[in-house]
């Protein structure tokens, strides 16, 4: 059995792992639709987006490895950390749920990620700026895809509208966490995340207006993902995701 790695987390490493984990975990959630999507076309769309996200995770893990300099590679970060070492947002680890849950989450996250990577393309850290510019375009398509579906679910039948609204109620407590600021020492390298909130709200409210859905008022926000305080769902996801690598270290195709 292979052992869990210890990561020397400078603020930059921690930031890069956080964004990589967001992409990896959401990518895995989308990949769970493979073989289960409502139609073939949507199955390919979900798999494409899952691969976009997993590709983003790989690039970010590589940047984290270089920043850490501890000899870890992308597989070590993905497969050999326990849930408390994962730095992802809580919203991405929530179960895929039904199609409305998946699409509503995808819209809320993709709008956020698009704005984040657009802002990060002005980073003073050149590898990050280059990656961000490319990723912002990828996320713009995720926004387009998810928005198209959210409008059709929200402004569709009574059943689809009810499911989309329930998905929003379920996911709304995880929104606040997306806008937590990164470490002060990263100013210039990383955009000021709280400042993205206004644009996010405007874009989400405009989408939900068109979809005839309401962004619920949140009484209590869930947070702690960046600090490794995750829910049960992530443990189950990692058990499935890491099992093979941990049982057969170094296994290849």
């Amino acid at each position: 059995m292979s052992v869990t790695i210890a990561v020397a987390e400078t603020p930059l490493v921690r930031f890069l792992l956080g964004r990589a984990d967001d992409a990896l975990i959401l990518g895995h959630r989308l990949s769970e639709w493979t073989g289960r999507a409502p139609i073939l076309e949507e199955e390919l769309a979900l798999a494409n987006m899952a691969l976009d996200l997993i590709g983003q995770a790989r690039a970010l893990y590589s940047m984290a490895a270089e920043a850490e300099g501890g000899g870890h590679d992308e597989d070590a970060y993905a497969y050999l950390r326990d849930d408390a070492q994962f730095r992802n947002l809580l919203i991405v680890e929530q179960p895929r749920g039904d199609f409305a849950d998946t699409m509503v989450r995808q819209a809320l996250y993709a709008i956020y990620a698009k704005l984040f990577w657009q802002a990060a393309s002005r980073s003073t850290h050149p590898p990050l700026a280059g990656f961000a510019a490319k990723t912002a375009k990828e996320m713009a398509y995720h926004v387009r895809h998810a928005s198209t579906w959210v409008i059709r679910l929200g402004d569709g039948t009574e059943a689809s509208r009810a499911r989309a609204q329930v998905a929003l109620e379920r996911l709304a407590p995880y929104v606040e966490e997306m806008f937590e600021p990164e470490d002060d020492s990263l100013t210039g390298i990383v955009p000021a995340v709280p400042e993205l909130r206004e644009d996010w709200e405007r874009e989400v409210r405009s989408l939900l207006g068109e979809a005839r859905l309401n962004l619920p008022d949140v009484v209590f926000s869930q947070r702690g993902g960046r600090a490794g305080r995750h829910g049960e769902a992530l443990g189950h996801l990692l058990a499935v995701f890491q099992h093979l690598h941990r049982s057969h270290p170094g296994a290849t195709w």
Binding site: L40, E41, A45
Partner: peptide, 20 residues
Amino acid sequence: SVHAADATLALQAARDVYTR
């Protein structure tokens, strides 16, 4: 060909199925 409920979804489905 693709199945889709309307033209917008058809364009997206075509993008995802045929231009990967």
